[in-house]
Design a protein around this nucleic acid. Sequence first.
DNA 1: TCACTGATGCTACAATGTTGCATCAGCATC
DNA 2: GATGCTGATGCAACATTGTAGCATCAGTGA
Lengths: 157, 157
Amino acid sequence: MTASDKHPDPAPSRSDARALIAACGGRVTRTRIAVVETLQASAHPLSHDEVGAALAAADIPHDRVTLYRALDWLVEQGIGRRIASGERAWRFEIAHGEEHRHAHFHCERCGQIVCLDDVPATTTPPLPAGFELDRAELVLHGACADCGRRHVQASKR
Amino acid sequence: MTASDKHPDPAPSRSDARALIAACGGRVTRTRIAVVETLQASAHPLSHDEVGAALAAADIPHDRVTLYRALDWLVEQGIGRRIASGERAWRFEIAHGEEHRHAHFHCERCGQIVCLDDVPATTTPPLPAGFELDRAELVLHGACADCGRRHVQASKR
DNA sequence: TCACTGATGCTACAATGTTGCATCAGCATC
DNA sequence: GATGCTGATGCAACATTGTAGCATCAGTGA
């Protein structure tokens, strides 16, 4: 993986993950460190399953339920963010503060989720009286560059 | 249910539902008619489960799988629209054309989804090169008027 | 090193959605 | 109105995603 694959904001490192977790008052465990590092190293939000696969690839033993709980804990602490991708499963990414809340693009051909760092998800729409806005989620659906290209080529044949 | 509870656009009626289904070349069946009428009569998107409950209340026999297939078919034909509410289950509403595509509000206290007819979901954001936009989904999360009020009252005590 | 307690790793279960297949019923035709 | 074709239905089984309960393990402070 190259630097350009990574999220632009933080330079992920083992000590960063440990510090991040410890700062929240949680225990610094193998699973949590690995989950944070996996999310930090990914350019796009990962599903629970993808995080699990990454841990397995790194030979880090883990349990499905523990992973759910670790991800939930990260979201609860504000370290992580949960995204409804439009598919059934949640996806998770590292939170970079409210001001960095961005829209996501969901490719309906390959299922990939891409962060649109330039497209803010925060809006101040006219809500009915009495409604309180907590956060906005903007998900764009379509075809990513790779899939769109493949589709054009296929239809040309 | 009063008129103000209903979606503003079409005046739902049995013949409407039949015509809508027949116009797509599909067979006009008991289940499909009931599903279309249920969605038309609702002011907000319904989950599969809620549609099933409505059919049960109307004494219309139906199967869970048939309901899934009927809803899928409606979406496929452009009669219905599928919404990822942020919870695990899909929700469905009657589609009123692309120009009526609107944002939705998800109340995190009562789980209700409200259509924000005045807030368009369509945007033309700056996408990376090669990306093709199909549709945008904007979901706002927070507390609806009822829940927000209850919360304020509870915290005053 | 020890004790406390939060985190983990099991099993079991719930909710939501899908697949395969035999049967039924809508619709066109006669 | 009777008939046949085929799409729609109903049922059982299964897949995926997420949650609950509980015994055990391990991080952390003393």
